[in-house]
Amino acid sequence: MIKHHPTFELIQSFVNGDLPASLSAGIAIHADMCPKCQKQIAQLTDQVAEASFEEAFLDRFIVDDSEDVNVLAEFDFDVMAEQITASNEVFVANEQLDKTIVFNDKTYKLPRALQSMVMGKTSHIGKLSRARIQLDENEIHTSLLQIEAGGSVPEHTHKGFELTVLLDGSFHDEQGEYVKGDFIMLDGSHQHHPISDNGCLCYTVANDALHFTQGINKLLNPIGSFIY
């Protein structure tokens, strides 16, 4: 059963469209597997939509900006409406081919939210395989990470945040067991050492190279930039 969910604040920013694509996709992937968050998102979207299009709420934006009122008055919506309706084109949804990705001969179905994203080449270190997702969000790095059965990520902390959404399989760390659909958000104060007994596939988003905390692993620091 899914036990780890995004916070209310994250869901709120998600609905408002304020999060970067990487985190938005993470929440969308989780919500697809979690009816509870799905429901919360749907309800919040209803509320936000209703409030957004309420005249009274909108008036707040132009309280001390009389210029805007003039611009709005001059703006010709009718012309725009006519231009739009002149086209008879109707949107046809692409047949959503269920895209897949292969790690070490194992084929995974790609979550809907990732269908249009560009995947980089897969690289390997030991039992870890990673494909970067090309989102170009500067210091935020997004990847798909496969841990083969018996593999683990060395103990580490982060300066920023590290989001892991479990797409398949399971892993455990000092805090407990995580299953498919779990949304695990860690910040710099957390330290963990995920181990996957039977293998798993994760969607990961991190905004800083991770920092290894245990003796020999410090020497392996390149693995930090490898994974996240």
Binding site: N16, Q47, V48, A51, E54, A56, F57, R60
Partner: peptide, 13 residues
């Protein structure tokens, strides 16, 4: 009440 739904929206932002 719509007015207070607006309040909730403002308050949560």
């Amino acid at each position: 009440e719509p007015r207070y739904l607006t309040l909730v929206k403002v308050a949560s932002k």
